[in-house]
Amino acid sequence: MTSESFGDLIERCRAAEDELVRQWRTDVAASLRGRVSEIELDKELRDLLDAVLSAVGSPQGSDTRSPAFGEVRALLVELSRSRALQGFSPRETAIGVFALKRAVRESVGAGPEFQAFSDVIDELGLFTFETYAKAREEVISNQAEQLLELATPVVKLWHGVVALPLVGTLDSARAQVVMEKLLQTLVDTGSEYAIIDITGVPAVDTQVAQHLLKTIVAARLMGAQCIISGIRPQIAQTIVALGIEFGDIPTKATLADALMLALGRSGVDVAAEMTKRGL
């Protein structure tokens, strides 16, 4: 459909802009349940309305993939990402576009060009839904990375001794983060001993053991000695049944035992230190 075909509808929409936006804002606000301020929502809708009317009034008319709709698409991408970050659902996001049809029909009437205009809005609504899905995937991916960082803390237990308490499953992606954080902490602290505590790891299989061994080898290349703690009876039985070999890597049942071993190897008189600290 050409721009001339939308001419009358565009003029009527601009003449009744305040009423149109009021109607549109009311419908959208009802779905958002007050989680976006009226001032912010009003600006979003006015900017989007102006861009849509300018686009359909261009020579490209109703071709939403044309350059004329570039600003419209940019506004919808920004809107979708904002809604995804705020935790809105795809329906709550897309309804902000689809509701424009009802607002136009209620405010300026449904003339002969309304069906073509409605088709344009449907296309933009689908674009919004698709953009929201991509934005939501990015949000989830970023959150997963942040949780991964939080789930692999490296803590300093003593001068020259750090500990890496692992909780949950140790897959390839997390193993890489574990290795990077441990190596960086060894560099930052100059520690000679690293205790890898697997008390919170529900099960140790061949894959988990391989990840641990790679991390330990990398730490050794940095000049640090590693100790594995948290070897529970069930874990020990599994390791034996699978034939997993830790070689000369020392293992302890508890983190406290591993710390005592690390302190002893580093020449710390544990008894004297405890007495000194009143323990």
Results as ranks from 00 to 15, higher is better:
residue 139 V to F: 02
residue 123 E to C: 11
residue 157 L to P: 09
residue 119 D to L: 12
residue 189 T to H: 07
residue 119 D to M: 12
residue 153 P to K: 02
residue 135 A to P: 00
residue 80 S to H: 07
residue 106 E to I: 09
residue 123 E to G: 13
residue 186 L to N: 06
residue 185 T to R: 10
residue 148 L to W: 03
residue 197 D to W: 12
residue 123 E to R: 13
residue 131 T to Y: 05
residue 140 I to W: 01
residue 109 G to P: 13
residue 152 T to N: 01
residue 180 E to G: 02
residue 109 G to V: 14
residue 93 T to L: 03
residue 106 E to Y: 04
residue 160 G to W: 07
residue 167 V to E: 06
residue 183 L to D: 05
residue 102 R to I: 14
residue 200 G to R: 04
residue 172 S to G: 06
residue 204 V to F: 13
residue 179 M to V: 14
residue 79 L to H: 15
residue 92 E to H: 06
residue 176 Q to G: 15
residue 76 L to Y: 05
residue 101 K to M: 09
residue 165 P to W: 02
residue 112 P to Y: 15
residue 176 Q to V: 12
residue 168 G to H: 05
residue 203 A to S: 11
residue 170 L to I: 10
residue 195 I to K: 03
residue 119 D to C: 04
residue 106 E to M: 10
residue 201 V to L: 03
residue 133 A to I: 10
residue 79 L to V: 14
residue 167 V to F: 12
residue 89 S to A: 10
residue 109 G to M: 12
residue 145 E to V: 08
residue 195 I to F: 09
residue 123 E to K: 14
residue 175 A to C: 03
residue 100 L to M: 15
residue 120 V to P: 11
residue 106 E to P: 01
residue 120 V to K: 06
residue 192 E to L: 08
residue 121 I to S: 12
residue 149 E to N: 11
residue 94 A to H: 08
residue 135 A to T: 03
residue 190 G to I: 07
residue 86 Q to K: 10
residue 142 N to K: 02
residue 109 G to C: 14
residue 182 L to K: 02
residue 140 I to N: 01
residue 133 A to E: 12
residue 90 P to D: 13
residue 133 A to L: 12
residue 179 M to Q: 09
residue 135 A to S: 15
residue 194 A to F: 02
residue 173 A to I: 05
residue 83 R to P: 04
residue 143 Q to T: 01
residue 158 W to H: 03
residue 99 A to T: 05
residue 166 L to C: 00
residue 196 I to Q: 02
residue 123 E to D: 15
residue 77 V to E: 15
residue 133 A to C: 09
residue 160 G to L: 03
residue 144 A to L: 08
residue 140 I to E: 00
residue 96 G to H: 00
residue 90 P to N: 11
residue 106 E to Q: 08
residue 177 V to R: 03
residue 182 L to H: 05
residue 149 E to M: 13
residue 113 E to V: 07
residue 87 G to S: 10
residue 106 E to F: 05
residue 139 V to H: 04
residue 98 F to R: 12
residue 198 I to A: 07
residue 111 G to E: 13
residue 140 I to H: 00
residue 127 F to N: 05
residue 181 K to W: 01
residue 102 R to A: 14
residue 159 H to T: 14
residue 96 G to I: 05
residue 76 L to I: 14
residue 195 I to T: 10
